[in-house]
Design a protein around this nucleic acid. Structure first.
Lengths: 192, 192
DNA sequence: AGGATTACTTGCCAAATGGCAAGCAGTCTG
DNA sequence: CAGACTGCTTGCCATTTGGCAAGTAATCCT
C-alpha cells in the first residue's frame, strides 16, 4: 500500500499534520518506471517532482572529458529530482535513469506551485526537503574531501546497501570518485 | 553606498521588482565584522541571514580526526549562511568566521519568516537563492571528483581571486581537499 | 629587543589512486 | 549456436598526494 509511504513522507518534516497530509496526497499521482527508463535527459527541463516508493534511480553527468559520472543514487523514500532544473526551470545538466523497476508518487511543477500558493504548511515542507538535501550533499562533500576511497565505500555499504546491491560497480566507482579498477581492488580487501 | 548592493541582490533572481525591493530592503540592517570575529560557532543555532557587501568569511568544520576543514568561502555579493542550522533551527556543525573586516546586510530569522508569510515574491526569492547555492555545491562536488587538485586550484584562482588573495594557504588547501605541502608544490608550478 | 608562535616551503620516502592492457565470465543478439 | 558485448578483475607501472621533519621568514607578544 504505497499511499502509506506518501503520507509518511509528507509528515516527515513535522510541518504537515496527518489531516493535512490526507488532503495534499491526492494531488500526487502514482507512476511506475521500467528499468533503464529515463526520468530526465540532459538538455531537458525537469517537470516532475518524484517520491520513490520502490526501486533505484541514478543521476549522472558527463565531465569535461566526456566520461559518465554518477552524481547521485535515489532509493525508496527519497526524492528523485534534479533540483536546479525543476525549480529554476532551466535545462538540466544531468540525466536521471531508473536502474531497476521503480514506483513512486509524481507531482508536476504546476501543481506544486499551486499547492505552494494555497498551503502554507506545504511550502514549509518543500523548503525542509530542500534543506535536508543540501545538508546531505554537504556531508558527502566533507567525506569526499577528508576520507580515503576505501572508507567512503564502506560507509556506502553500511548506509545504502540497496545501492551496492543493485547498481553496477562502475557507477558506484564514479559516484565515489575513483576508477573501476580501484574500486575492484578496494572490494578485494586490505593488503593487495 | 552599500544599500545599492542590497537592492541589486534582491533583484538578482528576477522574482522581485525594483519597487518591491525598495520595500523589502528596510527590513535588513547593516552590520560590520572585525577580522577573526565569529558569525556562528559549532553547537549554536544560526539566527541571521547575512548578505556580504565587503570582506571574506570562512566556514569550517572539524573532521573525525579533529582536523580543521574549510567547507566554504563567502565574499562580496554572497550570502554567508549555514543553511541547515538557519532553516532547520538546529545546532550548527560548522563555524563561520570573518577572515577580513566585513560589512553586510543582516536579516534575523524571525523577520525572514514574517516576510515569507506576507510577501509572495520574497518567498520565491528565498527559494531561488537556496537553489542557486545547491547548484553551486553540486558543481563543486563534480569538480572535486573529476579533476586533479592542480586544476581545482587554478579554477579557484580564476573564479575567486579574492579568496586566493586574502585566505591563508592552509585554509585554501583544506578547502581543496589537499595538504598544505601539496598546495605549496602545486603553486610552485609544473614539474617539481 | 628577545623568544615564542605561525605560515609556508622543501626534501625524502610511502601510500593511494590512475592508466592501460589482458583475461575471464556472463549476456545479449542474430 | 556463434560472435560480439559488457562488466569486472588483475598485473604492471606511472602519477598524484600524503606524512614527517627540517628550515626559513614573518608576526606576535611582553
Amino acid at each position: 500500500m504505497p499511499q502509506q509511504q506518501l503520507l509518511h513522507f509528507l509528515q516527515s518534516t513535522g510541518s504537515i499534520s496527518p489531516a493535512q497530509a490526507e488532503e495534499i496526497a491526492p494531488h500526487f499521482h502514482f507512476t511506475t518506471l521500467q528499468p533503464q527508463e529515463f526520468l530526465l535527459r540532459a538538455g531537458q527541463i525537469s517537470h516532475d517532482y518524484l517520491l520513490l516508493t520502490a526501486g533505484l534511480v541514478r543521476a549522472f553527468a558527463h565531465d569535461t572529458d566526456g566520461r559518465d559520472i554518477t552524481t547521485g543514487f535515489f532509493g525508496q523514500g527519497q526524492v528523485a529530482l534534479e533540483v536546479s532544473s525543476f525549480f529554476s526551470r532551466q535545462p538540466s545538466q544531468e540525466n536521471m535513469q531508473a536502474l531497476t523497476a521503480c514506483a513512486g508518487w509524481r507531482l508536476p511543477h504546476s501543481q506544486m506551485n499551486a499547492l505552494f500558493h494555497t498551503r502554507n504548511e506545504f511550502r514549509e515542507f518543500g523548503r525542509a526537503v530542500l534543506v535536508r538535501g543540501f545538508a546531505a550533499l554537504k556531508a558527502r562533500m566533507l567525506s569526499t574531501i577528508t576520507q580515503p576511497a576505501a572508507v567512503r565505500y564502506e560507509q556506502l555499504v553500511r548506509t545504502r546497501p540497496e545501492v551496492v546491491q543493485h547498481a553496477p560497480l562502475k557507477h558506484i566507482a564514479s559516484y565515489l570518485g575513483i576508477t573501476n579498477s580501484s574500486l575492484s581492488r578496494i572490494r578485494k580487501g586490505p593488503g593487495h
